[in-house]
């Protein structure tokens, strides 16, 4: 690994943290739960790492255990991603629906 690659990644890490702080400033209480569960779904991005990890031969290969771990990670991450976005969508539709009805 080149030091430049590491520095590049650390730069991304730090800039993204600053961006995250700036992105969410004043959020109305109604959106606290959807924001949390939407962000939670995004944290399922580790699906990417899980996919790479599970790309191994399973039948008797030496890497079988690490492939199995990655496969479990794929399942858990997909639950997190699909469940998270779906439940957030459900909540937001409910809130948006109320707005039309109440106005």
């Amino acid at each position: 690994m080149e030091p430049a690659f590491l520095i590049g990644n650390v730069t991304l890490f730090i800039l993204a943290i600053f961006l995250g702080f700036e992105l969410i400033t004043k959020v109305p209480a109604t959106l606290h739960t959807p924001l949390m569960s939407g962000a939670n779904a995004i944290s399922g991005i580790s699906i990417i790492g899980a996919l790479f990890g599970s790309n191994v031969a399973f039948d008797g290969g030496e890497t079988a255990l690490s492939g199995l771990l990655a496969f479990v990670a794929v399942v858990l991450a997909m639950i997190n991603v699909v469940g998270g976005f779906a439940v957030t969508n459900r909540m937001l539709n409910m809130i948006a629906g109320k707005k039309r009805g109440g106005a």
Binding site: A16, F18, L19, G20, I42, S43, S46
Partner: peptide, 8 residues
Amino acid sequence: AGSLVGAS
């Protein structure tokens, strides 16, 4: 994505 979620 991870650090965005972490910070927010």
